[in-house]
Simulated scan of single mutants.
Amino acid sequence: MNILDTAHAVAHNYPGGCESLAPRIGMSAAVLRSKVNPNTDTHKLTLQEAVRITDVTGDEAILEAWAQERGLALVRMPAAEHCSDSAVLELMAKTWETNGEIGKEVNRTFEDGVVESHEVTRVKDRIWEHIRTLFGLHSRIEGMVEGKR
Results as ranks from 00 to 15, higher is better:
64 E>K: 13
70 R>V: 08
22 A>K: 01
8 H>G: 03
103 G>H: 09
100 G>K: 01
80 A>H: 15
27 M>V: 05
3 I>C: 07
92 M>I: 08
55 D>R: 13
143 G>N: 02
119 E>S: 01
34 S>K: 11
114 V>I: 13
95 T>S: 05
70 R>Y: 08
13 N>P: 06
5 D>P: 08
79 A>V: 12
7 A>W: 01
128 W>D: 12
71 G>P: 00
136 G>N: 05
123 V>I: 15
77 M>E: 11
47 L>Q: 10
96 W>N: 00
47 L>N: 10
19 E>H: 05
135 F>Y: 15
30 A>K: 06
99 N>A: 10
77 M>P: 04
123 V>Y: 08
22 A>D: 03
62 I>M: 03
30 A>V: 08
38 P>G: 01
11 A>I: 02
62 I>N: 00
123 V>L: 12
54 T>P: 07
80 A>N: 12
43 H>S: 10
139 S>G: 15
101 E>K: 09
105 E>D: 12
31 V>W: 11
88 V>L: 07
66 W>D: 07
49 E>T: 03
68 Q>M: 12
70 R>Q: 11
21 L>D: 00
62 I>P: 02
144 M>P: 01
91 L>Q: 05
17 G>H: 00
61 A>R: 12
60 E>N: 11
142 E>G: 09
98 T>P: 09
50 A>T: 05
6 T>F: 00
11 A>G: 07
37 N>Q: 05
135 F>N: 07
62 I>W: 01
129 E>R: 13
132 R>H: 08
63 L>N: 07
99 N>F: 14
122 R>I: 14
81 E>L: 13
59 D>Q: 03
51 V>I: 15
108 R>L: 15
114 V>D: 05
131 I>C: 05
41 D>N: 10
70 R>W: 08
61 A>Q: 07
101 E>I: 11
107 N>H: 14
56 V>S: 02
121 T>Y: 14
82 H>P: 11
26 G>T: 00
49 E>M: 05
13 N>Y: 15
96 W>D: 00
104 K>W: 10
138 H>W: 13
32 L>D: 00
79 A>R: 12
71 G>W: 04
90 E>I: 01
56 V>G: 03
35 K>G: 04
120 V>G: 05
44 K>Q: 11
27 M>E: 03
145 V>I: 14
46 T>K: 09
98 T>Y: 14
91 L>M: 09
52 R>P: 08
24 R>G: 07
59 D>K: 01
61 A>E: 09
75 V>Q: 06
118 H>E: 14
26 G>S: 00
2 N>A: 02
60 E>V: 11
121 T>S: 15
